[in-house]
């Protein structure tokens, strides 16, 4: 009988825990840019409307990236990016669903720059691809800055490049991620 009460008590505590200790960090203004060097011209775009969550307890990390928010220097390039390459009307968002694998190495109580390993699934243009990359989590008080760089190829995501412009577009595209996480406050409905 006593055992049962213990189980019940633990269960109740667990039930209440998420309400007491908020473990989610988030941003709505994360920054992602990509860069590709090609013989004719460099292609570069910047996005400051990236939404990301990091659960510091589990290490779960997700990104939602509105594709139309990528800003190019040339407006025509931006139009072609959305219309012809990533097809933003059909696939408006790129997402990442994954984990900081070594979250236990990060001590949020102590300001420091922690090296982390991130693994997960990146979805662009409706295509899922596993991604593994290194990054850093820079803890400063209640804020955590996450940084990482990695590369992708258009082919991986079934982004077709017509023969005529193949020379103008690099094979590899470097992606830079820089997000400033703050504690997430659940919106009261």
């Amino acid at each position: 009988m006593r055992k049962c009460f213990v189980v019940l008590g633990v269960a109740l505590l667990g039930f209440l825990a998420p309400a007491i200790g908020q473990t989610k960090l988030y941003t709505r203004t994360g920054y992602i840019s990509f860069f590709s060097k090609a013989p004719l011209e460099d292609i570069e775009a910047h996005n400051k409307q990236v939404v990301s969550f990091l659960d510091v307890k589990t290490g779960d990390m997700v990104f939602s990236v509105p594709m139309k928010a990528f800003q190019f220097k040339k407006s025509l390039m931006q139009e072609h990016f959305n219309e012809n390459y990533v097809e933003s009307d059909k696939y408006p968002k790129a997402t990442f669903k994954g984990k900081v694998v070594n979250m236990q190495a990060v001590n949020l109580a102590q300001d420091n720059v922690y090296k982390v390993r991130i693994e997960g699934v990146l979805t662009i243009h409706g295509v899922d691809r596993p991604v593994r990359t290194d990054g850093t989590l820079d803890v400063k008080g209640k804020q955590v800055t996450g940084k990482s760089t990695f590369s992708v190829t258009p082919q991986e995501f079934n982004i077709e490049i017509p023969f005529l412009v193949r020379e103008h577009i690099a094979k590899r595209i470097d992606i830079t991620v820089n997000v400033l996480y703050v504690p997430y406050v659940e919106k009261s409905l």
């Binding site: 989610k24 988030y26 709505r28 203004t29 409307q49 939404v51 990301s52 969550f53 659960d55 589990t58 779960d60 990390m61 997700v62 990104f63 939602s64 509105p66 139309k68 928010a69 408006p92 968002k93 997402t95 669903k97 994954g98 984990k99 997960g120």
Partner: peptide, 20 residues
Amino acid sequence: FGQEDLLKLAQADDTLQTDK
């Protein structure tokens, strides 16, 4: 359901509800 839920939260929070 951690990652799925988080992604749902993230997508709901998108600042790009209306775009050009």
